[in-house]
Design a binder for these strands. Structure first.
Lengths: 340, 340
DNA sequence: CTGAAAGCGCTTACAG
DNA sequence: CTGAAAGCGCTTACAG
């Protein structure tokens, strides 16, 4: 048998011969209430182990103090650090977080947005799935509820965006390769033009241009699913090119690790023959040998910053804000590009 | 300016010249309501894009349809797969999940339990922090709210436990080492007697006993924090033993990878000189070379099963259930123990 | 300084 | 089959 009785304001009021209003005010430290009553009520509430029903409180004040978070996939190291940042900051600001996963399916993403709205979350944090085509519904949602996009964003949706300095990060990474003496740098990016992929590609182009290196079409490779397996596969393609590149920049660590695996199998020397550069600073990047040079993406900070802006917008009432905040990254140089 | 007007039952009722009760019943497919009215109301609701306020619904029915989940750390591959399982099953059952992280701090864990209760979650899923000493408060919480412990559990807390077959899994893993001809098998476990560590240790002992191998105290190593770094450190200690073992079973993959790193640096041949065996089947286990033999822990299944039992308990009203469900694991044999 | 009353959006026992 | 009313636990404008 489970104990059911929960103590409510009414119980306290009856016991103390006070009105519910007075008890409520005393507990909420309202201004015009006598010190004596306040003291009396508070100590009695404590004694009775009273806790306010947050659900009722939220219902009454039309604020749930819940934030919704939708990410494409949780079991991804970077994403999990983003979530950690979100939870931590949310807790500090007094919000709970309902977490959900769109599994990279746009239809599921829409369903979740709908569900979150229906549930009455005070604000929504969204990292878009790949192939988010129909942004109309998302824009419509943003008109009714504070929305912040993070990491995986779209310029077509006007709201606050929290991202990393994608282009600059890629630029610096590729420039690092150039500084180590590499001249024929290949890139592996996504076929689908996701925001992240495109920005990193831009950074790559910018670095080549700045250093007057030619842009060679055969060095620009794309794959649908930017994974370890495809990295392994594309590595063969890279090696079969008429003129072999002397460095490969892949826009994810997973893919870079796939490339390294194939190169090692075929006895290609990394970085002397071909250097490899990733993006994310995943846990794997220090497990693979040689250790991977990569761009560190501060997930916690992205998560925490998103909450900060979202809460600001929630408190800001009707004001819809749209600003883009870029979180700084930094390059972590390791063995896979190290000049000896 | 954000659009604020939300359509409520009252709006629909006024527009249709019906009572709120009737509209509510029509929408909820109540039995005694005329087909005509039902049709009328439903189509109008659809037209007006009405969605019920779930918060109000929950408030009224004293059911929030929210489950609380507390885990020690999210950014851990295994844990993130557990969360995926939880979210998926919860969604199917019509529950939302508030996720939170105790950061392995017992005080924080207690705070979170308190918060979840106060918030009125319908049930609580809890994976304990290491060093959970004071179980009184947790037991007290379980008296008021359905509670299911998962993965990191304690026998001192009477409620449903969803775990893997820890002892059996470790037994089979160590037996596999024995089958490959290893006779002097070391183990690295936790100093702190966590449930998981102790059960795996038991499995280790059981396998040695079954095969009449002596239990050698010097082969039983412990560390506070069972991490990659400590694996690296303990590998030196293992190599300095008077009689070197020919296999090492570490109770986590991370630690095993640390051991492998040190062994490789010192040119120890794996598995010929010393085999290495992990536990978890983390992503890293296939990145390290040689690839790690390990026990696959089906995180998704653990998560999903926990929700299944929790929801059952929620629907079961006052009945407090305490059963232990063991999820089957299986050994994944890879290079680090492969007999040539 | 305190209390009675209304109301947040819904459901449901009661009456008809 | 439909409606009026009560109530879930709280807060707050209004009166005194």
């Amino acid at each position: 048998m489970r104990k059911k009785t929960t103590i409510t304001l009414k119980h306290l009021a009856e016991d103390l011969n006070l009105s519910v209003s007075t008890v409520s005010r005393a507990l909420n430290n309202h201004q015009d209430i006598s010190a004596d009553t306040k003291e009396l009520v508070c100590s009695y509430a404590k004694k009775m182990n009273y806790f306010p029903n947050l659900f009722a409180k939220g219902f009454r004040s039309q604020k749930t103090h819940i934030i919704g978070l939708i990410v494409p996939q949780i079991s991804n190291y970077f994403t999990s650090t983003v979530i950690e940042g979100v939870l931590q900051e949310a807790e500090e600001k007094g919000y709970r977080v309902i977490v959900s996963e769109s599994k990279n399916r746009p239809d599921k993403q829409e369903e979740l947005i709908q569900m979150m709205r229906q549930f009455g979350v005070d604000g929504l944090l969204l990292s878009l799935t790949r192939k988010t085509k129909n942004v109309q519904n998302i824009i419509a949602a943003a008109e009714r509820i504070p929305l912040v996009l993070l990491d995986k964003v779209s310029n077509k949706i006007p709201c606050t965006h929290i991202i990393i300095n994608e282009e600059q990060a890629a630029f610096e990474a590729v420039e690092h390769l150039i500084h180590t003496g590499k001249k024929n740098i290949a890139i592996i990016k996504e076929t689908e033009k996701s925001f992240n992929s495109e920005m990193r590609y831009r950074g790559y182009l910018k670095a080549l241009k700045k250093h007057n290196l030619p842009i060679d079409e055969q060095y620009i490779l794309s794959t649908e699913d930017i994974s370890l397996q495809h990295g392994q596969r594309l590595a063969y393609q890279i090696l079969s090119l008429q003129k072999r590149p002397d460095a490969v920049f892949t826009i994810t660590d997973d893919c870079a690790i796939g490339v390294i695996k194939t190169f090692k199998k075929l006895q290609i020397k990394i970085p002397d023959d071909i250097a490899v550069l990733g993006f994310s600073n995943s846990l794997n990047s220090t497990i693979i040998s040689p250790k991977l040079t990569t761009v560190d993406q501060p997930g916690q900070k992205i998560g925490a910053t998103s909450v900060k802006y979202l809460v600001e917008e929630i408190n800001n009432e009707n004001q819809v804000i749209s600003k883009t905040v870029e979180i700084k990254t930094h390059l972590v140089v390791r063995e896979s590009t190290l000049k000896l």
